[in-house]
Design a protein around this nucleic acid. Structure first.
Length: 115
DNA sequence: ATGCTGACTATGT
DNA sequence: TACATAGCCAGCA
């Protein structure tokens, strides 16, 4: 039996490397429009060992959300994303316009700088 | 069964 | 752009 969480994990697993998706985005794809909190909570409850690129899931602001415990975990996540090719600006934010994952398969044309 | 908490988002100031 | 407030669902005590 698949729980709501399993659904979220499935969506997150579909995020290609070098791309990031917002909680709201994943929530909508998982069939939970507006329930971004559940996505974050699901990832929090994510058991170690589960193959889910939770690191590619960030908030709508393009920043990495901090999780109560495990201080610095967000920092590690940021490092992993940079390793995949995701660039962070001085404010520690990611340009969703360039690295935001397009579930529709549509891509903002390769190599497109907006600013 | 009820109540609280939680990796969020949208809107208003 | 940043801060504050309201709404939402699932899991645990």
């Amino acid at each position: 039996m698949i729980s709501t969480y399993q659904r979220i994990y499935a969506v997150v697993r579909r995020i290609p490397r070098g791309r990031v998706a917002t909680y709201g985005q994943v929530a909508a794809l998982a069939g939970l429009p507006g329930q971004a909190r559940l996505v974050g909570y699901a990832l929090h409850a994510l058991a170690s060992g589960t193959a889910v690129p939770w690191q590619r899931v960030i908030n709508a602001r393009g920043t990495v959300s901090a999780r109560g415990t495990q201080s610095g975990g967000a920092l590690t996540q940021r490092m992993m994303l940079e390793r995949e090719g995701v660039a962070f600006n001085g404010a520690g934010r990611v340009s969703l316009d360039r690295f935001g994952w397009k579930p529709t398969g549509k891509r903002p044309a390769a190599g497109r700088d907006s600013r």
